[in-house]
Simulated assay, not measured.
Amino acid sequence: MALDFPNHSRSFDEARRAVRFSGYDGMQQIRFFIEAAALAKSNGWDSATTASEAACLAAFDAGRASIQDIARVIYSRGRHPFYVLTASDFPGR
């Protein structure tokens, strides 16, 4: 089956400094995190450590389609309990 993102919910994980979101492969939930540093890179911020929760969530919402596209690519490389998207996963930004 293909990875799909029918649920638009996302949340900020302070401990990981990342936005958490989920996709589904059939009935199986697949967990993803995108680090604040990756969001900072894609938005031209000076520092991911100073980015607020609201800024990270807004950046995720603005880049949702491309983030989900990268998540699909990473998911297709192999099955894991969860995936962490980093700045290196977003070349050319």
Rank of each mutant, 00 (worst) to 15 (best):
M1S: 14
L3D: 07
D4I: 15
F5Y: 14
F5C: 01
F5M: 02
F5G: 00
P6S: 08
P6G: 04
N7L: 10
N7G: 05
H8M: 12
H8L: 12
H8G: 08
S9P: 05
S9C: 08
S9A: 13
R10I: 07
S11L: 06
F12V: 08
D13M: 03
D13V: 10
E14A: 15
A15H: 11
R16F: 09
R16T: 02
R16G: 00
R17F: 02
R17N: 14
A18P: 08
A18C: 03
A18F: 10
V19P: 05
R20V: 02
S22V: 12
G23A: 03
G26M: 05
G26Q: 04
M27C: 14
M27V: 15
Q28S: 15
Q28Y: 12
Q29T: 12
I30P: 03
R31Q: 15
F32G: 07
A37S: 14
A38D: 08
L39A: 05
L39R: 04
L39E: 06
L39M: 04
A40W: 05
K41N: 00
K41T: 01
S42V: 09
N43Y: 12
N43A: 07
G44P: 00
G44C: 00
W45I: 11
D46N: 12
S47I: 06
S47M: 11
A48M: 00
A48F: 10
T49H: 13
T49L: 02
T50E: 15
T50A: 15
T50S: 09
A51N: 08
A51W: 03
A51D: 03
S52N: 09
E53V: 07
E53T: 12
E53S: 12
A54Y: 10
A54V: 13
A54N: 11
A54G: 06
A55Y: 07
A55G: 03
A55W: 07
A55N: 13
C56T: 04
L57F: 01
L57N: 07
A58L: 11
A58T: 09
A59C: 04
F60K: 14
F60V: 06
D61M: 13
D61T: 14
A62I: 11
A62L: 15
A62N: 02
G63T: 02
A65H: 09
A65K: 14
S66M: 08
S66P: 01
S66A: 10
I67Q: 00
I67M: 04
Q68M: 08
Q68H: 11
Q68V: 08
D69H: 02
I70V: 14
I70P: 02
I70W: 11
I70E: 15
I70C: 13
A71L: 01
A71P: 00
R72G: 09
R72L: 01
R72V: 01
V73Y: 14
I74D: 09
I74P: 00
I74A: 09
Y75C: 01
Y75V: 06
R77W: 12
G78A: 13
G78E: 10
R79Y: 06
R79G: 04
R79A: 02
R79M: 06
R79N: 07
H80W: 14
P81G: 01
F82L: 11
F82A: 13
F82R: 15
Y83E: 05
Y83V: 05
Y83I: 04
V84E: 10
L85P: 03
L85E: 00
T86C: 00
T86I: 06
D89R: 00
D89G: 00
F90K: 10
F90E: 03
P91F: 10
G92A: 09
G92V: 12
